[in-house]
């Protein structure tokens, strides 16, 4: 193995390790939530490997449980994953010269935490081996952690009583992601408008109220950002 790959891997792993511990409750809760809507252990772990995106998994579970139409489930997953388009665009220059299979693997493994902690260092480095090590080591670690602790949740869910309202764990998990996200004014506006829009438009056919609410939320957040910038020009 290449020396600078190893150095990159060590640095990436060290930087990501503390944050990755915070993933453990997510993974366990996602495991429990997948079982709580009636997925078998095999189906739950299948979803965990195929989808490998906590927000999209937790967000689509209530729709799968309710028997929502496939297009709505996929559209919701797509919206919940849209942030990755931004991450992908930001990271693409760092991987531009890599073989196709490297780029496929790094796409499948791209998660918020690794991007947040390491994207700056990876984009700054001129050494392609170092960049790959720094990205792939924490990303694989994150994947392993996610699968192992989801399995703990999947197997643990079976021993918990059915009338404990465990499906609410998924809602709590979505809130735990949402709350820190809403720290800035426009983000909070986007969240409130999106949520209230979905509540008020719940009567729309085909559960279109959910998509309408999301569109309203994005528009409101964007408008709030413009309004804030006009008020206090930077």
């Amino acid at each position: 193995m290449n020396e600078s790959f190893k150095r990159g891997a060590a640095e990436g792993f060290r930087a990501f390790l503390p944050l990755s511990v915070g993933l453990i409750p997510w993974a366990v809760v996602t495991g429990v939530a997948m079982r709580s809507i009636g997925l078998s252990p095999l189906e739950a772990m299948g979803m965990n490997v195929i989808v490998f995106a906590g927000t999209a998994q937790l967000g689509t579970l209530p729709l799968i449980a309710a028997g929502a139409p496939l297009w709505l489930i996929v559209l919701t997953a797509l919206v919940l994953n849209l942030r990755f388009v931004i991450f992908s665009a930001a990271l693409a220059p760092a991987f531009a010269g890599y073989p196709k299979r490297h780029r496929l693997l790094s796409s499948y493994l791209l998660v918020d935490g690794v991007f947040a902690i390491l994207s700056e260092r990876i984009l700054k480095s001129q050494d392609a081996h170092w960049r790959w090590g720094c990205y792939i080591a924490p990303s694989v670690w994150c994947w392993v952690l996610w699968q192992v602790f989801a399995l703990v949740g999947v197997l643990g869910a079976g021993v918990l009583p059915a009338d404990w309202s465990l499906e609410f764990m998924a809602t709590i998990a979505l809130m735990v992601m949402l709350v820190p996200m809403s720290a800035t004014r426009p983000m909070l506006v986007a969240a409130l408008a999106g949520g209230l829009g979905a509540v008020l438009l719940r009567g729309m056919p085909l559960k279109l109220g959910l998509i309408a609410g999301i569109v309203i939320g994005i528009a409101a957040g964007f408008a709030a950002e413009h309004w804030q910038q006009r008020k206090e020009p930077t």
Partner: peptide, 27 residues
């Protein structure tokens, strides 16, 4: 694998998608 870029306005608008979607599911 190309050095493509997302239009800046779209990129800014997309930043609000996860928060709006999470709230639309939770509320």
């Amino acid at each position: 694998g190309e050095r493509a870029r997302l239009p800046a306005t779209l990129q800014r608008a997309l930043r609000y998608a996860p928060a709006a979607a999470l709230a639309a599911l939770v509320m």
